[in-house]
Nucleic acid binder design. Structure first.
Lengths: 202, 202
DNA sequence: TGAGTTGTAGTACGGCCATTCTAGAATGCA
DNA sequence: TGCATTCTAGAATGGCCGTACTACAACTCA
């Protein structure tokens, strides 16, 4: 071990994530990355390998932090509220992001997954992880009666996954609050009528 | 007027659509287009302008043919069947396409719409057109009692739009029949119970 | 202190990119 | 037939791409 890094590795990786997230893989050049990260291209190559490897690191980090943490955060709540919180966060994030970057995972699912087996697997695994979150919540909710049993947990979870992706795509092309919120709330309606308390009030 | 075109304009445009559809805008090079269309780069520039203009023509044509025609075809059927047919076609197409190209409109919604106002508008308009198809079908179905009134026509239509997009994205990352078919059928379940005949049988 | 190691900066490199130019071939019209 | 016009082919162009190389700076450890 000799000379230590001069740059903040987390900050640089975060800057790289922002680039790829915003523009995608192809449209992001090494020059863009150098400009955004503030370090030289040699340092980038030295620290992360080539562009593809840097993208892989960026995507993995994004999935682990943005998505993984959201799942953990939401899953702390009771099942039904966990799903509501998840959609709520997604919609809020989509609307408050001025760059309209959408979700880096969804963007990658379209851009890099189809023609690259490695990335297809990374994306598919992350999607399965989200689906797993939904399944766990729905099963728990169906067990304690807070979620309807009209559909199987898996069917409903996969439906939610599709809606989630749809929201993320629409966030980039039609970023209107009413649209995204409406879609989320019609999805949540599929959870079934809420408990007796709320029902009685209406 | 002098020397006429030597190439089949429809065939060339179709080849260009295939390129852009499969790889996206950025990842498709003029060299790719020359190879796929079979005509020289000079002819491409002469006939369609630059790469961006060719993409615009390709996208417009795609929307008009692939999507416009599907809407017209499906809308010939009664409202509920129209929606069922629409989802059925999408799922079938997604699964039988060996290239897993998904939908060129959805791909464009993520790749070119966010950073290009012209294309954002083109994509948004096309999405509104699909939404309009759903709204017309749902309103008609709610009027004749074949579709549930649990949600407003617009809310359900927008929900369907999101699910549709979700299916198209998943088709590129997780192209499994059971997944896509399951999502479509859980969406169709939102149309509500079918007519008395079918209900009585069960 | 100095030898060894690793990070950094700048630059050079070959290749491919979109685009344009040049020359000539094919057609319609007079 | 000859002129004007349009299409086609291929090469040329300038720029940017990702990447590798070279020289040097900064640190650890003996």
């Amino acid at each position: 071990m000799a000379r230590p890094r001069e740059f903040d590795e987390d900050a640089v990786l975060d800057a790289a994530i922002q680039c790829f997230w915003n523009r995608g893989y192809e449209a992001t050049s090494m020059k863009d990355l150098v400009g955004r990260t503030g370090i030289s291209v040699a340092s980038l190559y030295n620290a992360y390998g080539d562009k593809r490897a840097l993208f892989r690191t960026a995507l993995d980090t994004y999935v682990e932090t943005s998505i993984g943490e959201r799942i953990r955060r939401c899953e702390a709540a009771p099942p039904r509220q966990a799903i509501e919180a998840f959609f709520g966060e997604i919609v809020t994030r989509s609307l408050t992001d001025g760059d309209q970057k959408g979700c880096m995972l969804v963007n990658s699912a379209l851009e890099v997954a189809p023609h690259d087996e490695e990335f297809r697997q990374v994306v598919a695994d992350a999607l399965v992880r989200i689906e797993g979150f939904f399944i766990r919540c729905i099963e728990a909710g169906q067990a304690d009666g807070t979620i309807s049993c009209a559909l199987t947990a898996q069917a409903l979870a996969q439906h939610f996954l599709a809606v989630l992706i749809g929201i993320r795509v629409l966030a980039r092309a039609r970023p209107q609050g009413a649209l995204l919120e409406g879609i989320a709330s019609s999805a949540l309606a599929m959870l079934g009528a809420t408990g007796a308390k709320k029902k009685a009030r209406q």
